[in-house]
Simulated scan of single mutants.
Amino acid sequence: MNYRTYNAEDFLFDESFRQWTSGSSAQAADFWEQWLIQNPDRADVVRQAQELVRALNEHYQDDATDARFTSELNRLMQLAAERRDADIEPPIQALPQRSWWRWAAAASIILMAGLGVWLYSRTSIPKASPDSYAQLTKTAVLPLQEKVNTTNKPINVLLCDGSLITLRPKSRLSYPQHFKKTSRTVYLNGEAFFDVARNPAKPFLIYANQTVTKVLGTSFLVRAYEEEKAVTVTVRTGRVSVYTKQDFEKAQQSGLRRTEGVILTPNQQMTYNLIDRRLQKALVEKPTALMPEILNREQVFEDAPVAKVFSTIERTYGVKLIYNEEDLSACLVNLTFFNENLLERLDIVCQTIGASYEVLDGQIVISSRGCK
């Protein structure tokens, strides 16, 4: 058989070619891989045919039998012929052989174009996800109103509970005019800074691109553009819990009091990767002081236990420092801070006592052999 004269649709009808593409036959794989090495100029046609085979296999899934496959290809060829009859006029005084080749070429073009569109519709255009902003707002229990920022500057949105949301450009927020008695739920597509009014009796929930952020009252940033591959939540003050939407709703339905998620405190950040669906906590790149005015005046430590210095740093930035107090109990320092940021302060302290530090899971771990 002269495979070299095969067009893409010829490959589709070849059973051994389909077995190779689906990985169901080692013998077919050996043959076609060797054939492709000997015919590298046919690689593009082979690749196109393989994409169509995979698309059809995915479409039929468990019902992707050879008979079903061949039947569907014949149906598409019939459609191509009908399309040819309707749209392509036969040439006047054409020889039968030339008519056949014109038909074959036209049918091939129509078939591949039709399959190409069909493939594109199944692989390039995602189906409406139940976690998408459009679907969530469409199925919300309460009627929603939407605020869309079409400007190039942030705009403020004041909610009925007193919470203030700063909506960034190209972002949209949907929220009810009045919240339910048990919770406050909003939906975000884009980026927004939330300054949530505290109300322990009514948790504030933000649904954004497969995640749910739950707070009682705090300030934080959420970035969740649907065209991006990650969601980030950055906390400025207070405490925030972040969950995957699937875990959060599963816990709600089962009545669990505790839900597996990530707890964030000031200067911590959660990233949810939509590809591997994993929540990861880290320290923000540039931690800021909870009370910036503290940085504008000197902080002097004279013969002070290093544990006292670390405690001051924790209160200033809201971060957790992990260290062995017993090992550092003999360490006394003489230091003056003024305008240094968090990491610069840690560098100064660690250089003074001969220690080192690293950031792990949003916390700072300090290692030292102690002071003699």
Rank of each mutant, 00 (worst) to 15 (best):
M1S: 12
T5M: 06
N7T: 07
F11D: 02
F17A: 01
R18D: 00
S22C: 11
G23H: 05
S24W: 01
S25H: 01
A28T: 04
A28R: 04
N39F: 02
N39I: 03
P40F: 00
E51K: 14
E51P: 00
D62E: 15
D63F: 11
A64C: 13
R68W: 02
L73C: 10
M77H: 13
E82L: 14
R84F: 11
D85S: 12
P91D: 04
Q93M: 08
W103R: 09
A105Q: 13
G116D: 06
V117G: 14
L119R: 15
L119I: 06
Y120L: 14
S132L: 02
S132F: 01
V141L: 13
Q145H: 06
T150C: 00
T151Q: 10
K153H: 10
K153Y: 06
I165E: 05
S174P: 02
H178G: 01
H178P: 00
F179M: 10
F179K: 08
K180N: 07
K181P: 00
R184K: 10
L188K: 01
A192I: 09
F193A: 05
A201V: 05
K202E: 09
F204A: 09
T211C: 13
G217W: 04
R223T: 14
K229Y: 08
T232S: 14
R236A: 12
T237V: 13
V240C: 08
S241K: 12
D247W: 00
K250Y: 06
Q253F: 04
S254H: 11
S254N: 13
S254G: 03
G255E: 10
L256M: 11
L264A: 04
L264E: 03
L274S: 04
K281Q: 12
K281G: 02
E285D: 14
P287M: 12
P287D: 10
E293G: 01
N296L: 15
R297H: 15
E302P: 00
D303M: 09
P305G: 10
S311R: 15
T312K: 13
I313K: 01
G318C: 08
L321T: 09
N324E: 15
N324H: 13
T336D: 02
L343P: 07
L343F: 15
D347V: 07
V349M: 07
D361I: 05
C371W: 02
